[in-house]
Amino acid sequence: MNRTWVVIPMYNEATVVGSVIQSLRTVFPQVVCVDDGSSDGSQDIARTAGAVVVQHPINLGQGAALQTGIEFALQDPGMRNVVTFDADGQHRIVDAAAMVARLDAGEADIVLGSRFLDDRTQIGPMKRLVLKTAAVQSRMATGLDLTDAHNGLRAMNREVASKLHLTQNRMAHASELVHQIAEMKLRWVEHPVEIIYTDYSKSKGQSLLNSVNILAELFFR
């Protein structure tokens, strides 16, 4: 057995999550959706689409959902890799498959998606500036030379999955993850990925103001 689990944190994504899971399962049969207390019936849609649904009894935040999904995957003795994937369909499955292939080739312990390594991703100047600033901040804080610190597409092997402990329940988990990679001195590599900004993902995505929250959560731990 040699399984890759795809972990999808989900909160009120009923309109898109079904098709995201269906297309994911053509490549990755094991998909776990961590439902963070959705009220729009996302759970049933995810289950019908063939995902395992792990349900938080209350809303805890995306970071908590990721950690729950990773711990779920760790319970499977045949699990070898974990991929984290956003529910809103902004990631591409071919990118995820290529990242897992790099893990299997033994190139790294964790492969991080970056939208800035090639010019496929169409991105607005303000958002680019915010993300670039976040990347510079995380480089200064951790010494990791990342080009994109807030990308939801990542692939890690079992060892890394068992060592990660995300305690930042809300959005600051992305920076926390980078900190833990730096502390554990993991072999990491960035992989160019395309982010598909649809109107839906834009409306669900983080507003620029949210970066204030991310900073505050990081400083007042």
Partner: peptide, 9 residues
């Protein structure tokens, strides 16, 4: 909450 979620899954 995580314990409950994982136990019920």
């Amino acid at each position: 909450s995580r314990r409950i979620a994982l136990d019920e899954a």
